[in-house]
C-alpha cells in the first residue's frame, strides 16, 4: 500500500522534491504539498483504493504524511480487500 501511496503522491502531489527522498512520517505540507495538490491527491487516492473519505477525514491531518494517509486508507478499505 505504501508504494501505491508514494506513486500517487509523486503523480498528483506536485512536490518540489522527489517522493523517494521523504520518510513515511515526514510532513508532506512542510515538504511543499499545497492545499490544491492535497485535494487532487485525495481524489486520486479515492479512485485508486475505491474508497470515499468521510467528512471527518477531509482535513490536513489525514494527508499530513505517508503514514497518516496509510492509516486513513486502512480504516476505509474493507479488511478482506486490504489483505
Amino acid at each position: 500500500m505504501i508504494e501505491a501511496i508514494r506513486a500517487l503522491i509523486s503523480e498528483h502531489g506536485r512536490l518540489p522534491v522527489p517522493v523517494d527522498s521523504l520518510d513515511d512520517s515526514q510532513d508532506l505540507y512542510a515538504s511543499g504539498l499545497t492545499s490544491f495538490a492535497a485535494v487532487q491527491l485525495m481524489l486520486a487516492l479515492e479512485d485508486h483504493f475505491e474508497v470515499e473519505f468521510p467528512e471527518t477525514m477531509l482535513n490536513r491531518r489525514s494527508f499530513a504524511s505517508i503514514t497518516a494517509i496509510k492509516t486513513c486508507i486502512e480504516e476505509l478499505v474493507p479488511k478482506s480487500a486490504a489483505a
Partner: peptide
C-alpha cells in the same frame, strides 16, 4: 463540493 470541504478544513486548520 467534497474537495471544497477539504480546502475549507485546511483553511481553518491554518
Amino acid at each position: 463540493g467534497r474537495a471544497g470541504r477539504m480546502m475549507a478544513a485546511s483553511q481553518r486548520d491554518q
